[in-house]
C-alpha cells in the first residue's frame, strides 16, 4: 500500500461545515482532514449524514456554513485577497475535475456504450482527443475486467459489471480524490465481491485519496487506513480499523457495530 505522509497538507479538509435540510441537521459543525493517499471508510446509521458528506464534496449539495478545501483550494469558495467569496461556476467546474464519484445506483448513461460512457467526459470536459480518451478508457476497462464489453450497453450488463464501468468512468477523469457512495448496496450479494476486488486493487496500486461510505465492515477493516463512525452529522469516533472494530470507545459505535455485524 502506498504510504501516507501525515505531515503533508491534507487533500480534503472540512472546517466547521454545517448543512441542514429544513430542520434536519445532516452535517453538524464537521471537521475532518484526509491526507493524500489516505483511504477513509465512513460508517454509521442511515440518515447520519454519511452520504451528504460525499455529496457536498462532489458539489451535488451546497453547504450552509464552514469551508471545505480540496488539494489546498477552497471548494465552495474562492480566495479574493485574504477573503473567501462564494465560488463561481467556473471555479466549481475546475474543482470538480479533482474529484470523482461512484454512485450506489451506478448512474451509467444508458444511451451510450460502455466505451462512450468512459470517454465522453474526458473528450468533452478535459479536451482529450478521441484516440487518447479511447486508449485511457480501454486501459481502465481492462483493469476492471471489462475489456471485452466495450461495445455493450449498460442495460446488457449485470449490476456488478455496471458498477465496475462506473468506477472506470470516474477514474478516466484522473481525479485526485475518489468518492464511493455505498457502491455495493444496490448489488445482489454474489456480485459484491467483484466490485470490492476492483476497489481493493485501486487502493493498493494507485495514488488516490479514497472516501468510502460503506456497509461492508469486513472490507472497510481490510483496506481502510482510518474508519470514521458518523452519527447525527458528526464524527462520533474515528481511528484505525483495528481499534474501531475491536475496541470502540463510544457506546453508540459499539451498538451500531454489534447491530450491523449480527445482521451480516
Amino acid at each position: 500500500m502506498s504510504q501516507i505522509d501525515m505531515s503533508a497538507p491534507p487533500m480534503v479538509r472540512f472546517r466547521n461545515v454545517s448543512k441542514a435540510f429544513g430542520d434536519l441537521v445532516v452535517l453538524d459543525d464537521l471537521n475532518l482532514d484526509v491526507q493524500p493517499n489516505e483511504k477513509v471508510a465512513i460508517i454509521g446509521p442511515s440518515g447520519s449524514g454519511k452520504s451528504t458528506l460525499l455529496r457536498v464534496l462532489m458539489t451535488l449539495e451546497t453547504i450552509d456554513s464552514g469551508v471545505i478545501e480540496v488539494d489546498g483550494e477552497p471548494l465552495w469558495h474562492m480566495r479574493r485577497g485574504d477573503k473567501l467569496v462564494p465560488a463561481s461556476r467556473g471555479h466549481l467546474r475546475e474543482m470538480r475535475k479533482k474529484i470523482g464519484m461512484v454512485f450506489q445506483q451506478f448512474n451509467l448513461f444508458p444511451h451510450m456504450t460502455v466505451l462512450r460512457n468512459v470517454t465522453e467526459a474526458p473528450i468533452h470536459v478535459l479536451g482529450l482527443s478521441k484516440e487518447e480518451a479511447r486508449a485511457r478508457a480501454v486501459e481502465l476497462l481492462e483493469m476492471v475486467g471489462l475489456g471485452d464489453k466495450l461495445d455493450s450497453y449498460p442495460a446488457n450488463l449485470s449490476g456488478g459489471q455496471q458498477q465496475r464501468v462506473g468506477i472506470a468512468r470516474a477514474l478516466a477523469m484522473r481525479p485526485k480524490v475518489m468518492l464511493f457512495d455505498e457502491v455495493t448496496s444496490a448489488l445482489d450479494p454474489e456480485l459484491v465481491g467483484e466490485v470490492l476486488t476492483v476497489m481493493r486493487r485501486l487502493a493498493e496500486e494507485h495514488d488516490l485519496t479514497m472516501l468510502m461510505v460503506t456497509h461492508e465492515m469486513g472490507f472497510a477493516r481490510e483496506i481502510a487506513d482510518r474508519v470514521c463512525f458518523f452519527d447525527s452529522g458528526r464524527i462520533a469516533e474515528e481511528g484505525p480499523p483495528s481499534v474501531i472494530f475491536s475496541d470502540p470507545k463510544q457506546d453508540r459505535t459499539r451498538a451500531f457495530l454489534s447491530a450491523v455485524l449480527n445482521s451480516q
Partner: peptide
C-alpha cells in the same frame, strides 16, 4: 430523466449545456 443522470453528469464536470445536449436530451 432520472436525477442520477444529472448527478453523474455533474460529477464528471459537464457544463450545463453539455449535460443537456449529451446526457439529458438524448435520453
Amino acid at each position: 430523466v432520472p436525477r442520477g443522470q444529472y448527478e453523474a453528469a455533474r460529477a464528471l464536470g459537464f457544463s450545463r449545456a453539455q449535460m443537456l445536449r449529451r446526457i439529458l436530451v438524448p435520453q
